[in-house]
Simulated assay, not measured.
Amino acid sequence: MRLSQGQLNLLERCPRQFQHTYLDGIASPTSLEQQERLSSGSRFHLLMQQRELGLPIDAIVKENEQLQGWMNAFTEAATEILTPAPDGEFRESEHCRTLQVEKYLLTVIYDLFIARSDTCQILDWKTYPKPQDRRKLAQNWQTLLYQYVLAETSEYLPEQISMTYWFVQSDDKPQNLTFNYSNTQHQQIEKKLKQLLLQLTNWLKRYEIGEQFPQVVEGSKTCNYCQFISRCERRSTKRSDRNFEADLSEQEYSTNTLPLLANIQEVIIL
């Protein structure tokens, strides 16, 4: 079974939703707003890939005012990243790596990978505003898995690895968050990953004999944003006050939007 960071996020957040989505094959409907966000993100990723390959992008940018604004602002804010070093640097857009862990094939795709003799950097483009809580992004499986797989599949030490997210849709100008890696983190992630995969193995065995994956606890906010709330016989606990609106926005960015946008270029095969 091939697993991406988006699937690990979903499995950890709600095993039953993972089952319905990837094992039962139940389609997940998306709103027009979600479709537009995904489409915009996909276009920007494609634009950045073509730019890195040296292909012309002027015609594409001129046809889309939003893309043109994002690209102009990003080019100005990230000059050092977008300008290749003269020598001793390997760069690749949509760089793919896989790591076999027991019967699972972990797959990562870096929007841009830059490797030098003593350091390497993973870069990821996000077309939504910079999140307020850095800790949630630090614990997201995209951050964890991307750095872990690189350390396991290269000769770089964990301390030589970093990952930077660029958020092009920010108020004033594109902003970024960088996460430096370490051997301590690597060991912690390995333990956490193996525990999650062991749980998945056990749930799959039970699923084969007719048992369903576990659900989140009754009353969890996760159910409020899940398309399977009726199928799971759960009731929404949504509130109509401002606090709920803040919770909804945070949930969309930290659990739904982030994995979806990160998976734009990934095709998951079970």
Score class of each variant (00 low, 15 high):
residue 61 V to F: 06
residue 62 K to T: 05
residue 63 E to Y: 00
residue 67 L to T: 00
residue 68 Q to C: 04
residue 70 W to P: 01
residue 72 N to K: 10
residue 72 N to I: 01
residue 74 F to W: 08
residue 75 T to A: 07
residue 75 T to R: 03
residue 75 T to K: 04
residue 76 E to G: 00
residue 77 A to R: 13
residue 80 E to G: 00
residue 81 I to R: 12
residue 81 I to D: 05
residue 81 I to H: 05
residue 83 T to C: 03
residue 85 A to K: 12
residue 90 F to T: 03
residue 92 E to W: 03
residue 94 E to F: 10
residue 97 R to N: 13
residue 100 Q to R: 12
residue 101 V to I: 15
residue 104 Y to E: 06
residue 104 Y to C: 04
residue 105 L to W: 02
residue 105 L to N: 11
residue 110 Y to C: 13
residue 110 Y to A: 14
residue 111 D to G: 07
residue 112 L to A: 04
residue 115 A to D: 03
residue 116 R to V: 00
residue 118 D to F: 09
residue 118 D to L: 11
residue 119 T to I: 06
residue 121 Q to P: 00
residue 122 I to R: 03
residue 124 D to L: 06
residue 124 D to V: 05
residue 125 W to E: 04
residue 128 Y to M: 09
residue 129 P to T: 01
residue 130 K to F: 05
residue 131 P to S: 09
residue 131 P to Q: 10
residue 135 R to W: 05
residue 137 L to W: 10
residue 137 L to S: 07
residue 139 Q to S: 13
residue 141 W to D: 02
residue 145 L to E: 06
residue 147 Q to L: 09
residue 149 V to M: 08
residue 153 T to K: 15
residue 153 T to L: 13
residue 156 Y to P: 07
residue 156 Y to T: 07
residue 158 P to A: 08
residue 161 I to M: 10
residue 161 I to N: 05
residue 161 I to E: 04
residue 162 S to I: 03
residue 164 T to A: 07
residue 166 W to Y: 15
residue 166 W to Q: 04
residue 168 V to G: 06
residue 169 Q to V: 02
residue 171 D to K: 15
residue 172 D to M: 13
residue 173 K to S: 14
residue 174 P to Y: 13
residue 174 P to R: 14
